[in-house]
Structures are given as structure tokens and as C-alpha cells.
């Protein structure tokens, strides 16, 4: 198999290496955070480097190398690992405020209790593994944005730049992804018996008992 670097001159190959080496740890780390296993992450990073070699000409300024490589990584992740089930999640752009967003806080908080914060108690019960599993069940686009914003701490501007989308789209995708993540965590809390029922069911039951 021809090496992806074969097309490049020795000088270009040197430049590519100089660009990639300082960012390799970041690529591995984000790869691990995006993927469900180390082998998947290794495949992702390898594919990213191959694409970087093939598309080296598209990198305008070497100062933007990190952003460029991260962009390739996330794009490969989103397109390559998109499962059949999530293929329907094609367009995320408009997410109206009126749409019901799922909120763990709204579901769990008891505003009239002054001796505890049930929402915080439930959050403290989750293991890191529970959170990682919930993240792994998100569609790839949602997972990518949660990883970048919440795990990696990137600014909205950085995310917009890496994914080449407007900042407004970053906000709306984050909102949706967070909602999906919280719903998964809530379902886990119900499965574990930490929460009896959905709030609307509890409230409906209370109304029925009064009537």
C-alpha cells in the first residue's frame, strides 16, 4: 500500500511532521473521548493523519494547524462512525426555544424543600462510567460538541472554527446535545431506582389522588 505521504516532497513531509508531532497527544486524547474504545480511537487518529497527509495543500497557515487537525479528526469521526440509527440526525441547525428541552434540574429539583438538593444528590450518585456511557449513546454530532465544549473546555468560537459552523449553530447544537445527554442520565437514574417516576407522572398521580 502506498504511503499517504508518498505524494509529498521531503520538505513537505518535514513540515507535516513538525505540525503533527506537537498535536499528537491532543488528537489521541480527543479521539479517546469521542470513541467507545481505544482501538476505535487509534483507528480514528490514524485515519486523521492519513487525511491530513492527503489534504496538506488545504492548510493555509501553519499557525492554524491544531484547528485544522482537530477539524479533520471530528469530521472523520462524525462521518465515519455515524451508525445507521443516527443517520437520520442530519440537520441540527434550527432548534427553537419553544421546543421542550429535557433538563435534569427541572425534572429533579424540589423548589419547596429547603433541607436538600435532590438534583445534586442524584448527580453525585453517577459514576464517571455512567457519564461516559451516556455520552457514548449520543449521536456522533452531539457527542463531538459535548466533548469539545464540556470535556475539553473549548470556547464557542474555537468550536465554530473547528467544525466550520456559525457560533449560533454551536449554541443550538450544544443545547440539544445537553438535553439528550441529560435524558440518558435521567433514564439511568430511573433504572437504578434513584428516581421513582417522571415528574409529570408523579404530578398526574397526585392530581388523580386528589380528585
Amino acid at each position: 500500500m502506498t504511503s499517504p505521504c508518498a505524494q509529498h516532497s521531503p520538505e513537505e513531509r518535514k513540515q507535516l511532521k513538525e505540525i503533527i508531532l506537537p498535536i499528537l497527544d491532543d488528537l489521541q486524547r480527543v479521539g479517546m473521548e469521542l470513541c467507545r474504545s481505544q482501538s476505535e480511537a487509534e483507528e480514528l487518529v490514524a485515519e486523521t493523519l492519513v487525511r491530513a497527509c492527503e489534504n496538506f495543500g488545504s492548510l493555509r497557515a501553519h499557525s492554524k494547524a491544531k484547528q485544522w487537525l482537530m477539524g479533520i479528526l471530528t469530521n472523520v469521526f462524525i462521518s465515519k462512525y455515524r451508525t445507521k440509527q443516527t443517520r437520520r440526525e442530519v440537520v441540527y441547525d434550527e432548534y427553537s426555544d419553544e421546543e421542550q428541552k429535557f433538563s435534569l434540574f427541572d425534572e429533579l429539583s424540589q423548589p419547596f424543600f429547603w433541607w436538600g438538593n435532590p438534583e445534586r444528590e442524584v448527580m453525585n450518585k453517577f459514576l464517571d462510567d455512567d457519564l461516559k456511557r451516556a455520552m457514548n449513546s449520543l449521536p456522533e454530532e452531539s457527542r463531538a460538541i459535548v466533548v469539545m465544549c464540556d470535556v475539553e473546555g473549548c470556547s464557542y468560537e474555537e468550536i465554530a472554527s473547528v467544525l466550520t459552523i456559525p457560533i449560533g449553530t454551536v449554541r443550538s447544537r450544544l443545547s440539544r446535545a445537553s438535553s439528550e445527554l441529560q435524558k440518558h442520565l435521567y433514564d439511568h437514574a430511573v433504572d437504578m431506582g434513584w428516581v421513582a417516576q417522571r415528574r409529570e407522572d408523579r404530578e398526574r398521580k397526585a392530581v388523580n389522588e386528589q380528585g
Binding site: Q28, E33, D128, L131, K132, M135, V151, G153
Partner: peptide, 10 residues
């Protein structure tokens, strides 16, 4: 909690 999921690849 999400931030704590940052992986150490060293």
C-alpha cells in the same frame, strides 16, 4: 463532572 472525563494519554 463532564470536565473530569478528560482522558490522560501520557
Amino acid at each position: 463532572r463532564l470536565r473530569a472525563l478528560k482522558v490522560d494519554v501520557s
